[in-house]
Nucleic acid binder design. Structure first.
Length: 583
RNA sequence: GCCUCUGUAGCUCAGCUGGAUAGAGCAUCGGACUUCUAAUCCGACGGUCGCAGGUUCGAAUCCUGCCGGGGGCGCCA
């Protein structure tokens, strides 16, 4: 078993036998952070309630049993209020825990007990359609979850389920023919997907001849006509190239290897329906082939179906989503499927999962999770739009972020120049956009505000990056490699209150990461990192490092800075944010 | 109509699987730079946690009802 760095986890472990002895097998210490001490254990109250005893007396009994285990760990343990155990750690214990964390490649974060194969479904842009701010959330949240799950040791499969199939492709292909293949391709590759799509749409709506051609083309596409497929592949290839440009700007992990296009599932669609039919789940309703998962009703209170084949024999996204489930279970053998998809799809996904369960494709411990998220709003609290009222192109938004960050740097630090300034502008601009998205609870809508996200104070990426840059500066001036600092010995001396607060925060990284992953809520890690940056700057203000009074203090503070910079860097990396060395 | 998410300081948000006196940041006001990056720090001000009940030793947190806002509810994805 690997040693645990987090004092709350460690002390919970130390207290567990005493609580179990007094309260029975279900009794837990319930250790939480506290304002009045370093931690409080609330478990005695639950035991008292269950046993009908006085909670303070229960706390006394538990404490008496636990005392030996806490020797050297806690400098004081008090019973307070109705029966809390207030725990204060010894500085020596904290120093020892810091040594454990510093020696750990994972900075004290416990690896997953059981390694799972997790598939994450995110980003999913549509071919020949613009990527907009709606794609920002799924892409950034998904990317962050991939990084965290991998950090915990899971095997992660990224799936970018791009929309490359469906009736719109008839008009898109015909539009491409009208423009000429090379013109069309160049229009798409420079990223004018909105113009291309709207051009096709306008003709489709206005021109009946064009409409007929488009419909005929859909038939050819579905029939597998080679020439039509060739044209279709041009659309897909040019769009994919454009998506990759946006992904590159964003700095996310997605590559072509992660593409799981809708069309990939086409051959499976009839099979899915057939298998549902064999399982006796399919009914005909108004001419369509449907499954009725229990518990869903429409607005008239009648059972609500999941339509898997429409009345003219076509398949839809429910069929495709079911095919995905089958593919992931039977081909990839995944343990967990994570869908980073907007909140409006909640009912659809719930029904798909329900049908998959009915068919026996999805059964515990295998699980499917909908990681839902809200909208990005403008200052008017409506869906974010460009000035002209069009939907905002993601690529342009990212360019603007880098531009704004560049302007800020030019003003604040004129010494940075050339390529370094450009790189820093990118790290700050993109980091700011990502952090603004990740730092609020994903289920809620948030207001997109340039000034707030790019501010260098407050809960923003630049504030965290600035703390990181100051740390790097210390090591640069000391002429020490910050990565090699903590190796060997136990240099930590926890003394000043700022050192103590920083130490406690650093040691809570484990809990912060696990809380974040357990709830698929990156904003929890953001909150932690902001707290860490604040604790560090307080330390930085009051505790000289390079000019410390004596060498032991200097060594200890350098080592403390060494873990801080690693946690900050790793934490930001888990959010997909780059921390520049200077800014 | 039913389902679902949501309502916390002037503003933007944490806290929600029950714990002690509800926390940050911004803004406002007052302090701190010949100092490891002041892009910072310290302090003050600021809240009947939408409303009303209930559960209990204890509720922002759980339950019920109501009010306000968003979303979803049969052949698009």
């Amino acid at each position: 078993m690997c040693p645990m760095a987090d004092p709350l986890v460690t002390v919970a472990e130390l207290l567990a036998p005493a609580f179990a002895a007094v309260g029975g097998s279900g009794a837990e210490p319930v250790v939480r952070p506290s304002d009045r001490a370093d931690a409080q254990a609330n478990g005695a109250l639950a035991i008292a309630k269950r046993l009908g005893q006085n909670p303070r007396e229960v706390a006394e009994t538990v404490l008496a049993a636990a005392r030996p285990a806490l020797l050297g760990v806690c400098s004081s343990v008090d019973i307070a209020g109705p029966g809390f155990l207030n725990l204060t750690f010894t500085n020596e214990f904290l120093a020892g825990q810091l040594t454990v964390a510093a020696a750990d490649e994972h900075l004290g974060v416990r690896p997953a007990r059981r390694v799972e194969h997790v598939v994450i479904d995110y980003s999913h842009p549509n071919v020949a359609k613009e990527m907009h701010v709606g794609h920002l959330r799924t892409t950034v949240i998904g990317d962050s979850l991939v990084r965290m799950l991998e950090f915990l040791g899971h095997r992660v499969t990224k799936e970018n389920h791009i929309g490359d199939w469906g009736t719109p492709f008839g008009m898109l292909i015909e539009h491409m023919l009208d423009l000429g293949e090379t013109t069309a391709a160049s229009e798409l590759s420079v990223g004018d997907l909105a113009g291309f799509y709207q051009g096709a749409r306008a003709k489709f709506d206005a021109d009946d001849v064009f409409k007929d051609r488009a419909r005929q083309r859909v038939v050819e596409l579905q029939r597998g006509d080679p020439e039509t497929l060739r044209l279709w592949r041009i659309l897909v290839a040019e769009s994919t190239r454009y998506f990759n440009e946006v992904y590159h700007k964003l700095g996310v992990l997605l590559t072509d290897d992660d593409l799981a296009p809708e069309s990939m599932y086409n051959p499976m669609l009839p099979v899915v329906v057939e298998r549902l039919r064999e399982a006796g789940l399919v009914q005909e309703s108004d001419g369509a082939q449907v499954v009725f998962p229990p518990g869903y009703t429409n607005r008239d209170g009648e059972p609500l179906p999941l339509i898997v084949q429409n009345s003219v024999g076509g398949y839809n996204y429910a069929t495709t989503d079911l095919a995905c489930v089958v593919d992931r279970v039977e081909r990839l053998n995944v343990d967990r499927m994570v869908y980073v998809v907007g909140a409006p799809q909640a009912q659809h996904l719930a029904m798909v999962f329900a049908v998959a369960e009915m068919a026996g494709w999805l059964a515990p411990p295998r699980e499917a999770v909908h990681v839902a998220f809200g909208n990005v709003l403008g200052a008017d609290r409506k869906m974010l739009k460009s000035r002209s009222g069009e939907s905002l192109k993601l690529g342009e938004l990212l360019d603007e972020a880098v531009e704004r960050a560049g302007a800020a740097i030019a003003e604040k630090n004129p010494d940075l120049s050339g390529p370094e300034r450009a790189a820093v502008a990118r790290a700050i601009g993109i980091g700011a956009v990502k952090y603004a998205d990740l730092s609020t609870d994903r289920i809620k809508d948030y207001v997109f505000d340039w000034d707030r996200m790019l501010a260098f104070d407050g809960n923003t990426a630049p504030y965290l990056q600035y703390a990181h840059a100051r740390l790097c500066s210390i090591f640069r001036r000391a002429g020490i490699d910050r990565r090699g600092i903590a190796a060997g010995g136990s240099p930590f001396v926890v003394c000043e209150v700022q050192e103590r607060n920083l130490a406690l925060r650093l040691l809570a990284f484990d809990t912060a990461v696990w809380d974040t992953v357990d709830r698929y809520s990156p904003h929890r890690l953001c909150t932690y990192l902001f707290d860490l940056a604040q604790d560090f700057t307080a330390f930085y203000e009051y505790c000289p490092v390079l000019k410390a009074d004596d060498d032991a203090t200097r060594q200890s503070r350098l080592a403390l800075c060494g873990i801080t910079v690693r946690v900050l860097e790793k934490g930001l990396d888990l959010l997909g944010i780059i921390a520049p060395e200077r800014m």
